[in-house]
Simulated assay, not measured.
Amino acid sequence: MAFLPAGAMAYTPSHLEANMIVLGVESSCDETGLALYDTERGLLAHALHSQIAMHQEYGGVVPELASRDHIRRALPLLTEVLTKSDVDKQAIDAIAYTQGPGLAGALLVGASVACGLGMALDKPVLGVHHLEGHLLSPLLASKPPEFPFIALLVSGGHTQLMRVDGVGRYQLLGETLDDAAGEAFDKSAKLLGLSYPGGPAISRMAEFGDPAAYQFPRPMLHSKDLNFSFSGLKTAVLTVVKNHPANICEQDKANIARGFVDAIVAVLTAKCVTAMKESGLKRLVIAGGVGANLQLRASLNAAAAKKRFQVYYPELEFCTDNGAMIAFAGAMRLKNNPGLATRDYGFNVRPRWPLQELVAA
């Protein structure tokens, strides 16, 4: 199923017109990010504040606290970005902000900041799809992939395989039927008593585990399609934990973590290899927070060497939510169609926004 018309314009240098500087504002969940992207010079500066320390006490993101913290952080981060880049605010040509998907209150903060700045500076604004930002984030690397490529978007809220033929040209190949991979990481980590965020914690613990101690199921590994399912794997971890004595020793926690990580990485890798084979493409792009996982990177790198395709990752600082990917996605959209930006500063956000509803640039 193609998300956008096949004629949607892909990003190539020949499509670029006048140079522009775009401010990106990201506030979809628990990171506040601002960045300036110049279509000639590249990323000028970015600044990010993570709310991890604030939410750790609660074992997960508290939406109301997240929204309030975005309010406190946005303008100081803007000042930081302008100072780092030595760009006057009047030199900004357009402002892109995350319109969705995400937490409603958090999205409203970023949208109001962007539209308020737009009105104050008389600059056009553009709402950007958060997932498109992630999909295009590997293009910010020093050696970006060329179109077309297969993309694995893997995060706390999403696990999808897509064919990407250009900016605005996306075809869904497969997706999770229940829990996202990052969600399974976080929930399984919580079962082991690990702190938030669970994904990095369980991955670190897995490094000390015995891979032969627990053989967890590989859900949908042989399903003959490119869909995923991780709720059963999470349940398998829960069953093992419940069947243990009250206090699980640290080594056994590490063994359980290793079994879980090996299972989820095996499924993600196998589906990527199948997608590469079926598409005939030679470039695989990994996007989203789970793309920073070292076990997943090692597995995909080994598969790429064996099957002779190339794999690309965003820089580690751009795996999680950030303003740079929003500024970049907004810039690419505006270069294809400058009319997308508006000086109508009334705004709405879209907490649930399927990528297939994204209109062509």
Score class of each variant (00 low, 15 high):
residue 4 L to T: 14
residue 6 A to N: 11
residue 21 I to A: 04
residue 21 I to M: 08
residue 23 L to Q: 02
residue 24 G to H: 01
residue 29 C to I: 03
residue 31 E to V: 01
residue 33 G to R: 03
residue 35 A to Q: 05
residue 37 Y to M: 05
residue 38 D to K: 03
residue 40 E to F: 04
residue 49 H to I: 10
residue 55 H to Q: 09
residue 64 E to F: 12
residue 70 H to R: 10
residue 73 R to L: 13
residue 73 R to D: 07
residue 84 K to V: 05
residue 85 S to I: 00
residue 89 K to Y: 04
residue 90 Q to D: 13
residue 94 A to R: 12
residue 94 A to D: 11
residue 101 P to H: 11
residue 102 G to E: 06
residue 108 L to W: 11
residue 116 G to C: 05
residue 117 L to R: 14
residue 118 G to T: 01
residue 122 D to R: 14
residue 123 K to P: 08
residue 123 K to M: 05
residue 128 V to M: 13
residue 133 G to P: 08
residue 139 L to R: 15
residue 145 P to K: 14
residue 146 E to W: 00
residue 156 G to M: 12
residue 165 D to F: 08
residue 167 V to N: 09
residue 168 G to V: 14
residue 176 T to V: 09
residue 176 T to M: 10
residue 177 L to E: 02
residue 182 G to K: 13
residue 183 E to V: 03
residue 186 D to T: 00
residue 194 L to T: 00
residue 201 A to N: 12
residue 206 A to P: 01
residue 218 R to D: 01
residue 220 M to D: 01
residue 222 H to G: 04
residue 226 L to M: 09
residue 226 L to W: 06
residue 227 N to S: 14
residue 229 S to P: 02
residue 229 S to N: 07
residue 241 V to K: 11
residue 250 E to Q: 15
residue 254 A to W: 08
residue 256 I to L: 12
residue 257 A to R: 08
residue 257 A to H: 02
residue 258 R to W: 04
residue 263 A to D: 07
residue 272 C to L: 06
residue 273 V to W: 00
residue 275 A to W: 07
residue 278 E to L: 13
residue 291 G to M: 10
residue 295 Q to V: 02
residue 297 R to N: 12
residue 304 A to N: 12
residue 304 A to W: 07
residue 307 K to E: 15
residue 320 T to F: 07
residue 322 N to K: 10
residue 327 A to K: 14
residue 330 G to C: 11
residue 350 R to L: 13
residue 352 R to S: 11
residue 355 L to R: 01
residue 357 E to D: 14
